[in-house]
Write a protein that binds this DNA or RNA. Structure first.
Lengths: 200, 200
DNA sequence: ACTCATACATGACTATAGTCATATTTAAGA
DNA sequence: TCTTAAATATGACTATAGTCATGTATGAGT
């Protein structure tokens, strides 16, 4: 690896670490780029060579976290159980891990929703990361259809949209500082409703 | 009405009209407060006597629009039909009207979600406005339970959350510039799924 | 009509994200 | 080693939302 490449990685990690510390200390919104660059001992312009916006840094934090969380999700799905329970497990597992840093999670759910507006995600890597959950849910639904757990007449894409919407909203509501219920139970009941149907 | 009160209303309307024109011309994000106040012939500080933030102006636009739209929603519900169809009608009607100003709608859905984070809405009026849709849906569900359209064992609050989440996400997705499907059909199918259930 | 407290108007000022022309560093070839 | 092009670093600069001390208009009480 060339000196250039080494320095690049070093600087990015430097920004990442300093920012992480400052965010923990004072929160994302009240930490300025000026502070980060000063603390990191780099010029302000340098920051923007690594992250095009402040939000991009946030998203990078999210990606690092997701890299770990999603690598563990396979274990959650290993047990033999119904499609319904698998979906419940995945969503509860995500929320459980996201709970460790509520502020980051809130801001990221928000960023996620912001980008519903745009279709053009730069790289395929970008897409994969952003749509990891969508992929998992639609795979589970398809498996469910094959195994007879899920009605075969459903539109998988639409159903995935329904479940994702419910998940993200429930997550946002649960992340409110004053909420004091169990996310797992809340989402479990909602998923039961979607499976059973609310009509009589 | 005193001179003071008259002037206050006049200034607010002035800001509202000028801003409306500029937003139409160049969009919300690329219109600055400086431009609005200059065009309106008032000092910059004056703006903030009427709207605490730029977003508050946006919300005001949304409230004015909702005032009209929600006053018409009674008609939509007048016809005799199932709870399921009523919910479909309400949501399709809202989207139909929101379509006339997509940018405003997108930004407002976004603001709405932003404020899921906070519980403390200043006045009761605020709450009423913000929760109009929630009220309508939960009323319809309760009516549905009474009339036997909806399973009596459901949790109305949770079900309302489910439907609201689906509605807002579907709306966001539909508002994307390149979408070319009918919102009414999309939401109708999704609501059918929630009523019938996706489990087999 | 005069006084004065209160509401309202104002623009200079601050904070901060992001830009960009310029300077510096690196890597590769002669 | 010397030259040079490309990558990277930098901080002065811009744009813009929001603040606040100060000035001005209004209305109530006398």
């Amino acid at each position: 690896m060339s000196l250039r490449e080494k320095k690049k990685i070093e600087t990015k990690n430097n920004i990442f670490e300093v920012a992480g510390r400052l965010f923990k200390e004072k929160g994302f919104e009240s930490t300025s780029i000026d502070e980060i660059t000063e603390e990191a001992g780099i010029g302000k312009g340098t920051f923007f060579n690594y992250f095009p916006t402040k939000e991009a840094l946030l998203v990078y934090f999210g990606e690092q976290r997701d890299e770990i969380i999603y690598s563990l999700i396979g274990n959650e799905l290993a047990t033999v159980c119904s499609t319904r329970d698998k979906i419940k497990k995945v969503l509860a597992f995500l929320a459980e891990n996201y709970e460790k840093d509520k502020e980051l999670t809130k801001l990221l759910v928000f960023e996620y929703i912001k980008y519903i507006r745009f279709t053009d995600l730069k790289s395929d890597e970008d897409k994969k990361r952003r749509y990891r959950l969508i992929k998992i849910i639609s795979d589970l639904l398809e498996e469910g259809v094959r195994e007879g757990d899920v009605r075969s007449t459903i539109d998988v894409k639409k159903t995935t949209e329904i479940l994702t919407a419910i998940y993200l909203f429930s997550l946002m509501a649960w992340l409110k500082p004053e909420s004091d219920y169990s996310f797992a139970m809340d989402i479990s009941e909602k998923i039961d409703m979607v499976f059973k149907g609310i009509g009589s």
